[in-house]
Design a protein around this nucleic acid. Sequence first.
DNA 1: CATTGAGGATACCGATCGGTTTCCTTTCTT
DNA 2: AAGAAAGGAAACCGATCGGTATCCTCAATG
Lengths: 200, 200
Amino acid sequence: MSTEQVTTKAAAPRERILATTRTLFYGHGIQATGVGELAEVAGVSKRTLYQLFESKDALVAAYLALMSQHGTAGERNLDRAELSARDRLLALFERPRLSARFRGCPMHNAAVELADPDHPGRTVIVAHKHALLARLAEIGREAGARNPEVLARQLITLYEGATALATSLDEVEPFDFARSAAETLIDAMIDQTGQTAPSS
Amino acid sequence: MSTEQVTTKAAAPRERILATTRTLFYGHGIQATGVGELAEVAGVSKRTLYQLFESKDALVAAYLALMSQHGTAGERNLDRAELSARDRLLALFERPRLSARFRGCPMHNAAVELADPDHPGRTVIVAHKHALLARLAEIGREAGARNPEVLARQLITLYEGATALATSLDEVEPFDFARSAAETLIDAMIDQTGQTAPSS
DNA sequence: CATTGAGGATACCGATCGGTTTCCTTTCTT
DNA sequence: AAGAAAGGAAACCGATCGGTATCCTCAATG
């Protein structure tokens, strides 16, 4: 009757599989990665994989949930308590690491690859973007923005655009331009009435 | 030896095939569309398809070239001579038609789907973005922007971001927010010195 | 009318897909 | 030491992939 350790024992293969999805699904694409190849790289048999995940679609959903939870470096910067609200918003546009070829936002890439609007992963994608929007609005409010929701929408657009352009052009400069635009937008949302306008 | 009409006769199937790529490659995704299915929908045999296009990759490149040449509605708005330079820049952010499910930028989607950086389509993608950048800078210069290249980079980021977000969230509102942000950025690039500042 | 070439229909190729099943080894529990 | 469960290796399934080859129809040309 001792099923106590089952979860502990099952943990190892599951983590290895999910770690491999981060490499292959993200690096090579979801459709381009076969279940067999993924299992092999993870050092797991297909048999084990399929008793941990119902189907490839379910595995994709788990992969997206993992990526959503982890977030990008820029997204994690939004929680850096040592920065001012304004600086946190700007830190969103930190250049992605050049190591491990940058391939854009895993959520959005999945939305592009999985044309089917009923794919189980779609929920995760939409939830992630909504959560990011809410977080941006919250920080925007803290920064004193007159309309935090609009600012959040504008900033997420810049972030998404920098990510997409960086993917299409295979360069990271778009993040720098996005950041400069974000600065202008944030200040336009805070100043304008002139009440906080600096000396210069 | 009369090969005079060859091009004319070959035109019909070729156009039918390319028209079908716009439907299937764009609507369902490139990887998700098989050559057999595409030929069938185009009303053409695989035999004919493969004697018009060397391979699926070549067909994809032709599809991308076609989409690049045609451009989106927003991109075509950049040439509307009846509008001022500023209004042309803003017209870039016209909401995409709701008919025929919007699925984002075909170029960028291809960049996401075709992880291989050596795919023949990559050239078309990069060239398209560079051309758009140049056009935006040109119009920005005409509008009197202090730094047209930077403005172009900022605007293309917004445009790309609106497109990507609209795809991920399956809604068109991102274009409205992108447009409002563009207005702020454009005006910040033109005014600022105060020489054209309005009364209010 | 006879010839020629384009092109549709279709079968075929080897490879790979997502997913299932069988067999056997390893390892932990009692 | 004995027994049970986990999991790796690998065969297998039907379906589909990109791509090729065969056969036959049809339409325009001389």
